[in-house]
Computed example of a mutant assay.
Amino acid sequence: MSTVSGTEIDTAAVGRWLRAFAEAIAENREALTALDAEIGDADHGVNMDRGMKAVLAAAGDEPATDPGALLKQTGMTLVRSVGGASGPLYGTFFLRMATAAGDAPTLDAAGLAKSLRAGLDGLTARGKAERGDKTMIDAMAPALDALDEAVAADASLAVALRDAADAAAAGRDATVPMLARKGRASYLGERSVGHQDPGATSAALLVEAAATALPPAP
């Protein structure tokens, strides 16, 4: 087990993370949709809000027995309920996390980092994107690099996730001057420059929700 914090992440903690993310998406629904209107289909906020509401409903109807089961349920729900590219991408992210988590009753910090990295690998494969393409990977990849570095340095879970959230926010902001090379935004060519990527924005919200919900109360 990792010595990062001595705290294990159980199913209830993952549930708190998902609720925090759902709340963040609801609060930012119009802002996400406005960003998507500039370079996409103007539906990212609406689609993600619908999907996360469905995730919370499914979790309430069929309580999961371990973190991996809840992550799998989340991924499957997002694939079914979210339109556009967001459903398959976020769905793949959580499904790959679930596979990495397995049926362990809890995850330590290293296990969480491993599961998140598996999710990112799934995103990369599914979206055929890499850093610099102006996608959610530009927020997630630096976040997980920061998390891995903090875990390796035996930082507390709170510090590790705060580092990850800060890196995700910086990655989100860095998409503004980028030229989109994937997705609907890529059709705009040079006109995609100067706009913040909506997928990177929601990904940063996901990492921020983890930093808020997963560490133990002081």
Rank of each mutant, 00 (worst) to 15 (best):
D173H: 06
L78R: 09
D138P: 02
L188T: 01
L157W: 07
L157G: 09
R184G: 02
A174Q: 13
D166I: 14
S115G: 11
P177N: 11
A113V: 03
G122D: 13
G194C: 10
D138A: 03
E190T: 10
S81Q: 15
A211P: 13
T175K: 00
A146T: 06
A211M: 12
E190D: 15
A165C: 08
A152N: 11
R126I: 07
A150S: 12
A100P: 11
M76R: 13
A150I: 08
G87S: 09
E149M: 06
T212R: 15
G111Y: 03
V159M: 13
T201E: 05
A185M: 02
T77W: 13
L107D: 06
K72H: 14
I137S: 02
V151Y: 06
R80W: 13
R184E: 03
G119Y: 08
L206N: 01
R191L: 06
A155M: 10
A213P: 05
T124Y: 01
A200S: 08
V193D: 03
G199Y: 00
A203H: 00
K72T: 14
G87V: 10
A158C: 14
R181W: 02
L78Q: 12
G199F: 00
L120S: 00
M140Y: 10
A180H: 00
E208W: 01
D173R: 07
K182D: 03
A113I: 05
V193L: 05
G194N: 09
A170Y: 01
D197V: 04
A204Q: 06
A185Q: 01
I137C: 00
A160V: 12
A210V: 11
S81H: 15
L188C: 03
L116N: 04
T135Y: 01
L144A: 09
G183A: 01
R80N: 15
T201C: 05
A167C: 10
V82L: 07
R80G: 15
D154R: 08
R172W: 04
L107C: 10
K114E: 11
L123V: 13
L112C: 14
L95A: 12
T135D: 05
A143R: 05
A152S: 14
K114D: 12
A139Q: 10
S192F: 01
K128E: 13
R117I: 07
M140P: 01
L112Y: 09
R117P: 03
V176I: 15
A118F: 08
D173V: 02
L147I: 04
L112R: 08
S156D: 15
A101K: 11
T135F: 02
A104P: 07
F94C: 04
G91C: 12
L144G: 08
A158E: 15
A100T: 04
S86D: 04
A213Y: 12
A164W: 03
S81R: 14
D197C: 03
G189N: 03
R172N: 10
A143M: 07
K72V: 11
A165S: 14
K134M: 01
S202C: 00
L161W: 09
E190M: 06
L157A: 07
D173F: 00
G171L: 06
L116Q: 08
A213T: 09
A158V: 11
E130R: 12
A155P: 06
D145A: 10
A200Y: 00
R181D: 02
S86K: 05
G87A: 09
L120F: 01
A213N: 12
L78A: 08
